[in-house]
């Protein structure tokens, strides 16, 4: 065997190991990146107490807008304030632990419930619910999912670095999505805006592109 052939064989034998190392390394990286990293990146927070959207939705006449309404000036009220709840919840209704927490810890002393908002966008984002719900007649579900039919509140996952909710990036760490409500990133907004040919200039400033949302 010539010296050249010997060297070639040595390389070939070493290639098997290298491939193995590569595969093992890749798998390990993927596990770290897709499983371990999200666990480290996001902290798990519980809401102050659980809330049953489905139950309440059955009791009201105007669906989501019964509680998540628009104010007279057109601005969106967001998460309901205590004042909207106290009419019914002045005293404990039913026998769930969550109801008791609500009434005893918040209603009676008059403290607003510090709800964690899953869909809270970064401060640099200007978003108008009125433009989407009133003008474009979109339903809540398109962005928020079918929350109205959920009977429990999921765990709030907060990005330890940015402080944003995980719902903004999306549950899938790779960024894949099946439904429109799986993610709330800038790309998701622009995808819809481009697809529907939404006016690309800000109504207020007349400036295009970035300034529509980043005012």
């Amino acid at each position: 065997m010539s010296a050249l052939e010997e060297k070639s064989k040595a390389v070939s034998d070493g290639g098997g190991f290298a491939l193995l190392f590569f595969v093992v390394g890749l798998v390990a990286s993927l596990i770290v990146g897709w499983v371990v990293f999200p666990k480290i990146l996001y902290s798990q927070k519980r809401q102050p107490f659980d809330f049953n959207h489905k139950l309440h939705n059955e009791l009201v006449d105007e669906g989501c807008e019964s509680c998540h309404f628009f104010r007279e000036d057109g601005s969106y009220a967001g998460v309901p304030k205590l004042a909207q709840c106290v009419d019914c919840h002045e005293s404990v209704q039913g026998d769930t632990e969550d109801e008791a927490i609500f009434v005893n810890d918040y209603v009676t002393p008059g403290i607003e419930v510090p709800w964690l908002v899953y869909s809270k966008q970064p401060d640099c984002v200007f978003f108008s619910h009125a433009a989407h719900v009133k003008s474009a007649e979109m339903d809540c579900k398109t962005c928020h999912g079918d929350i109205g039919n959920s009977s429990t509140l999921k765990v709030y996952e907060e990005n330890r670095i940015t402080g944003y909710s995980r719902d903004i990036w999306g549950k899938n760490i790779a960024g894949f999505k099946k439904n429109t409500w799986d993610r709330m990133k800038m790309d998701d907004c622009s995808e819809c805006h481009v697809k529907l040919g939404v006016h690309q200039n800000s109504v207020q400033t007349g400036k295009g592109a970035c300034f529509v949302c980043h005012q």
Binding site: R71, D73, S75, A77, G78, P122, D123, T162, G163, Y164
Partner: peptide, 14 residues
């Protein structure tokens, strides 16, 4: 969110 950028809380204007 960014602690060095104070952003006031949202609420009803009056």
């Amino acid at each position: 969110m960014w602690p060095w950028t104070p952003v006031p809380k949202n609420g009803e204007a009056n």
